[in-house]
Amino acid sequence: MSALVLAEHDGGVLSAATLATVTAAAALGGPVHVLVAGGDDAAGVADAAAAIAGVEKVLVAQDAAYGAQLAENVAPLIAGLMDGYDAFLAPATTTGKNIAPRVAALLDVMQVSEIISVEGPKTFTRPIYAGNAVATVQSSDARLVITVRTTTFDKAAATGGSATVEAVSGPGDAGLSSFVGLEASRSERPELTSAGIIVSGGRALKDAETFSQIITPLADKLGAAIGASRAAVDAGYISNDYQVGQTGKIVAPDLYIAVGISGAIQHLAGMKDSKVIVAINKDPDAPIFQIADLGLVADLFQAVPELTGKL
């Protein structure tokens, strides 16, 4: 099965999510090509994509219309390239989730969303019901459109490959939408979805100031990324892109420290594949303790600063 993978990139940098998607694509058993759609920075990203181990060819579509990854413009480009491929794969990031279903509909294909394993050329597993069940599904469509949960696939090596690079073009600007701006939450910390350690805070953190007073020093000490529950985001302690869960980011770090988080199923859906889970909560019956490797029943306002001091 020949596969086309959508490269995800930002500011000229290829994302780690792309590397995991290449691994999923390779599991289909055929050649893997990568599409880089973008503006001025596309050429640089294409060079990075060409170096990914196992990638045979990189297609570059450089056009201002593709700069902001608007689905209205990028989806027809992809659909137009699919004659030569059996499958299209995108990482299940907000970019991939925005574009891939639009490609699927243009190709009259039912998308297989957020796969966690490849069981056969057309058979996949995917979590449903907030990860409370795992379905094995088989597609009967002639071509496949797939989004990939990137935390469950190893990253392909970013170097070692020597793919050919070929320029392609598409219909360009569909004239339906325009990019106005991005309010980026910039941070010097490791990125949430690829961090080795995450310190995550919940509603118990009271307000934005307290959240950062308690959580940030511990995260700094551990070189960790910061995460949050929906309740913490809703209450404005921290911005939306820190939300971990069914409808936020899916993470699987080596160590996840949940501070003042009760452990609702929607939160667990986003972090229960972490290698080691630590929970600090004053309620011994909080559901988070049912999945924590190490639980500490304590007042976080005392326990967390103490922990930060002793690490």
Binding site: V109, M110, V112, T123, P127, I128, G131, N132, A133, V134, A135, T136, V137, Q138, S139, S140, D141, K272, I277, P284, F289, Q290, I291, A292, D293, L294, G295, L296, V297
Partner: peptide, 20 residues
Amino acid sequence: PRLTTLKVEEPPVRQAGEVV
């Protein structure tokens, strides 16, 4: 349907560890 569900399973259960 275009997708056939071959089976639906419980995810691996994570055992609770210890309370320190």
